[in-house]
Design a protein around this nucleic acid. Sequence first.
DNA 1: TACACTACTGCAGAAACGTGCAATAACAGG
DNA 2: CCTGTTATTGCACGTTTCTGCAGTAGTGTA
Lengths: 258, 258
Amino acid sequence: MLPASRKELLLQRLRQDGRLVAKEMADELGLSEDSIRRDLRELDEAGLAVRVYGGALPASPAVADYATRTAVAPDSKRRVAAAAVALIEPGATVILDGGTTTLAMVAALPRTFRGTIITHSPTVAAALLEHEAEVLLIGGQLFKHSAVACGAAAVEAANRISADLFFLGVTGVHATTGLTTGDADEAAMKRTLASRAAETYVLASEEKIGAASRYSVLPLDEVTGIITDSAKNDPTTRELAAAGARLVHTAQARSSKS
Amino acid sequence: MLPASRKELLLQRLRQDGRLVAKEMADELGLSEDSIRRDLRELDEAGLAVRVYGGALPASPAVADYATRTAVAPDSKRRVAAAAVALIEPGATVILDGGTTTLAMVAALPRTFRGTIITHSPTVAAALLEHEAEVLLIGGQLFKHSAVACGAAAVEAANRISADLFFLGVTGVHATTGLTTGDADEAAMKRTLASRAAETYVLASEEKIGAASRYSVLPLDEVTGIITDSAKNDPTTRELAAAGARLVHTAQARSSKS
DNA sequence: TACACTACTGCAGAAACGTGCAATAACAGG
DNA sequence: CCTGTTATTGCACGTTTCTGCAGTAGTGTA
């Protein structure tokens, strides 16, 4: 019995019976309870099951959404999100910008992450309800176009917090115009958030590389790194590097996690 | 029987029978009353049941997992939501509490409503993205169970705004205990919001009438009205009216009901 | 008040858990 | 073919959790 297919069997048994006793499974499969427990631990960390004393129970129905959500995001966004999540230390305080890539980050973030997430996006906050992490919501005028709180009140609220990391979403990453977005107020908000974190990483899925929008957020060299999916020897990528951007490349051929 | 699923069974039995006797459950499950009592104690602490001498009673039905609550939008909630929306004047500034009934209000609100909606619930804010109304988000520590921002920062932010109307969600509306909810911080937040609006209406779908939770929000007579679905000649309803509650009945509330 | 019943506390045994370690097997590279 | 590395597994140890019991305190009723 391969370890991978054994986990599959455990999940199937969970769906079938609605519960799973570690000792029973150990007897049935002819291996020690330790191995079963290790599997259950990983399934729990992956959010696919809930471990309880004596065995495990199926994860909440919400997990189904979780699976679909992760599947929906384009590969590029998923890879960028995964690379970004990998930068988060346990217990860290992290600011998440709004946008689809940050939503993909929430999907990629382990449910058991015990840290603080600060966000001005109600969508991101709502997605984090299923996680254990502490969530701090920054209020303010809601900008419908990008679904984030902006404006003076939001900037003021943001100025009271500080964090280890900020994951910045932009609409354009360009060698000459730098990091840009489509709204002036939003750009100001992003700058404020960047100033509140020790390190700022840009989430730059492929469609953003080489693009530019109307309002400048920051120069390329004022962020800690730009997480991108693009090839290292791509001309545009090299232009960015030459312009002072510190690029963080995703592991495109990364094997599946569990 | 896993200890974790045993608690689930107890909750199910509570929902089914409306009561639970420790001794009976001990006999039925073949374990000591001590274990049952220990479970009930934890369920009580978690706010999922109310312990009484000899066993336990269900907590206010409104107290359940947020996920399960969102799944069902019973007719009662829809009627209450529709009645609430009818109270909103064009161009008004409205504070919306968190919860499923306020979400139903968003669904019932015309997309073309041109006013301002203030909320401390990221879920409500996200639902309003498709509307034309201006949205002001109140930030703060996110309280996972009911998906709203609470705490000192949220109260402070709330104190800077003022509105025409506040639609208050509670988990219990009871003649003697008044308006109650399951968390102390949340109760404080609700009081603050109520103080910022000229008029406060309570959204009381049927399962909340006659129920009580641990923390008091406001007395019955300190709100402008309680929007309810229950029958006018229902004994519980009359008790509420006698206790000073100004009841606003929905269109579908009939005089004879179970 | 007296009585029966229920609840809480502390305790001890049993079962389950987590961690570190060692043995084994599969695999890559020289 | 040999060697170093990695993944997997079982075992031993100490720790935590669950459970029932005994004793004591509290509650409801007559």
